[in-house]
């Protein structure tokens, strides 16, 4: 069979894998919904969770589509479609693809055509590099969770603080990341300030939503997507201004 990066058979295989992953999400969703009803949770709360999760996901998912488009120029459409639909993330996949491509003496962004052997090599590198979480979770996930349950049984208050401290720790790493180019400001290049200002806009929108929530109830449901989208939109004039 003559090889092409966009060969229909590759699309069929990718389609089958993505369908399986979709089926897993639906399976877990149905079981969790059933359990929620058993626990006596209100249908209203569940419907709201589904709605807000779906709305919140739209903008980050579009950012993922943009990455698919970027990688598709070099790797064809099927492989980036697979790699960005299952495991991995925006930043990981680009780095993995760049490493795999450059290991064969090519440069990502300038690949004109790939042989079957090169394509298979890239696919193996991207697949094997990212496959740890998927088997490690079945292996030790339950033990980690049991550890958390033990903490909860010993000291309920500390267990609550423990989880919140983890969230705060994760958030502070990303807040730190927003300042990663900040030092350019010291040498007169103001572009390092762009992510900081965008973050401030987003934070302000969230704070305003918090103040408005007593008067406009629905705003509570959409506060996070709203602060994210307005923050992203503010990046356009801020970037034009500072770079």
């Amino acid at each position: 069979m003559e090889f092409s990066v966009n060969h229909p058979i590759i699309f069929v295989m990718v389609g089958v894998i993505i369908a399986a992953v979709l089926a897993q999400s639906i399976f877990f969703l149905v079981r969790a919904m059933r359990r929620a009803k058993e626990l006596g949770m209100e249908s209203k709360t569940l419907r709201k969770t589904i709605k807000t999760a779906a709305i919140f996901t739209i903008a980050p998912a579009i950012a993922i589509v943009i990455s698919v488009m970027t990688l598709a120029k070099d790797l064809g459409l099927a492989l980036p479609w697979l790699r960005l639909s299952v495991i991995g993330s925006l930043s990981y996949e680009t780095v993995a693809a760049a490493n795999a491509v450059s290991a064969m003496g090519l440069t990502l962004g300038q690949v004109k055509s790939l042989t079957a052997s090169q394509y298979i090599t890239i696919t193996w590198v991207m697949t094997l590099s990212i496959l740890v979480g998927i088997w490690l979770m079945p292996l030790i996930g339950k033990r980690i969770q049991n550890g958390m349950i033990n903490i909860g049984n010993k000291d309920k208050k500390w267990s609550e603080i423990f989880t919140n401290a983890m969230f705060i720790g994760m958030l502070s790493a990303f807040l730190g990341f927003v300042f990663s180019d900040f030092s350019t400001v010291f040498s007169g290049d103001w572009s390092g300030l762009i992510p900081v200002l965008v973050m401030i806009v987003s934070a302000l929108v969230m704070a305003i939503c918090g103040l408005l929530v007593k008067k406009i109830k629905w705003i509570y449901d959409y506060a996070l997507p709203l602060s994210m989208i307005l923050g992203m939109l503010s990046a356009i004039p801020i970037t034009n201004w500072l770079s």
Partner: peptide
């Protein structure tokens, strides 16, 4: 600027 826009609101 997706990440700063996302984490700004969440952090508040």
């Amino acid at each position: 600027q997706l990440i700063p826009a996302l984490f700004g609101g969440l952090a508040v």
